Simulated assay, not measured.
Amino acid sequence: MRQFTQKAFSAVVALALASSLTACDKEDEATKSTATTSEAETTSKEANTEAASAEADKIVIKHAYGESEFKPAPDRPVAVRNAVDALLALGIKPVAFVGLESELKQPWRKELLKDVEFIPYDDAALEKVLAYKPNLVIGDQWVVGQEFYDMVSPYAPVVAPKNKARGEGNDWHYRNEVLGKIYGKEAEAKKVESDYKEMIEKAKADLPNLEGKTVLSADFIADGTVNVVVDPDDPSYYLFRDLGMTVPQAVKDDLLPQTDYGRVSISYEQIHYLDADLLILGATGMSAEEAYAKLDEVPGLKELPTFQKGHVLLDEAGANNQAMSKPTALNREWLLNYVRPYLEKIGR
């Protein structure tokens, strides 16, 4: 029988321990491998769940220039020019407003913007906007063209026009709907729409004879011409169109075919085209005093039936350039109240 010396015993024990440790190491490695695999699978599942959740949280809005992805209820919106009203109408204050001084002071929004940072709309605006780290930028179809979108979209998602066409689909109704989705305020957005429809229906009930009446918006220009909005579907006429009004037939027949963008400049010799049931007359490039002087200078103007009946609204408040030509969710009621005394004359 083989005898085990202490040295031999120690060697056997060492060998056994080594074998045991090797086996344990293998088991540990197997265990670790299993644990690592399990952890990896768990991490992968969690990552997939988080990714799926993040993907589900994304709100994708398709538009004329592609699509934009927004996180729900962005907390750092920046509004450019008149599109700010779309945010304000839903009770959302932007971190900054980019616009003109005159836009900042418009009566339907000035109180709502008094605590909002103002950025002048100029060549330095983009750099200033990015300093606010916006996670939503919104502008209307007059501002957000391809160039604007290409400049801003690499830094922040943009609420861009639905299509590249002028007018329908790019109006305040579209911006109201999109913001309702992004901010989870669909109910509030629907109320904005229903309030507007209710306002229109009430006005039509109060003024039943507005249906079929004519309206015309025109500006005296400093160069001696008159700029006339001739397209009945121009945004300037949205409110009046909803009330059942349109532009005079002679304007549709003679002037509308001359333009692709809804406006025509006429000479003082063509002043007869300004005869409408309601004429909203403004001025560009001249003072109010100079504009009033034009009323006496232009031959035949005051002889028009619309002047004789007192149906001329002299646009001292600038509604023609703001509330009329740039319709928003906030300025519809203001505009209706502004023109209401004249609508009363022709609509009862």
Rank of each mutant, 00 (worst) to 15 (best):
G91E: 02
P134G: 05
N82Y: 12
I59A: 07
A47Y: 15
A56I: 03
A131D: 09
K128Q: 13
T43I: 13
T34C: 11
V95H: 05
P120N: 13
N48Y: 06
G99R: 02
V95C: 03
E117N: 08
K71V: 00
D115W: 12
L87M: 05
D123W: 02
E55T: 08
P72I: 06
L100Y: 10
E103I: 06
F118D: 04
K58H: 09
V60M: 06
L130P: 12
F70G: 01
S68H: 01
A73M: 07
K45T: 14
F70V: 00
E127N: 10
D57S: 14
E103S: 12
D85R: 00
H63R: 04
T34V: 14
V116P: 04
L87P: 03
L104W: 14
N82V: 14
R76K: 13
A47M: 15
S38W: 14
E41W: 13
Y121C: 05
E39S: 10
L88T: 04
S33Y: 09
I61N: 00
T36E: 11
V80T: 08
D122S: 06
L88D: 01
D123R: 11
T43P: 00
S38P: 04
F97S: 03
K45V: 13
R76E: 04
S68D: 06
K62M: 05
T42V: 10
S33V: 08
G99T: 05
A125P: 03
E67R: 08
A86E: 12
R109D: 01
P94Q: 03
L88I: 07
S38C: 10
V84G: 06
E39I: 13
S38V: 15
N82D: 13
E101S: 14
K71L: 04
E117K: 12
E67I: 05
L87D: 01
V95T: 08
T31F: 15
T37Y: 09
A54P: 08
P74M: 11
R76Q: 07
P72N: 08
K93H: 08
V95L: 03
A47P: 06
K133I: 03
A56D: 02
F97Y: 13
A40Y: 12
S44Y: 11
L100V: 05
L100E: 09
G66E: 04
L88C: 05
T43V: 11
K114Q: 13
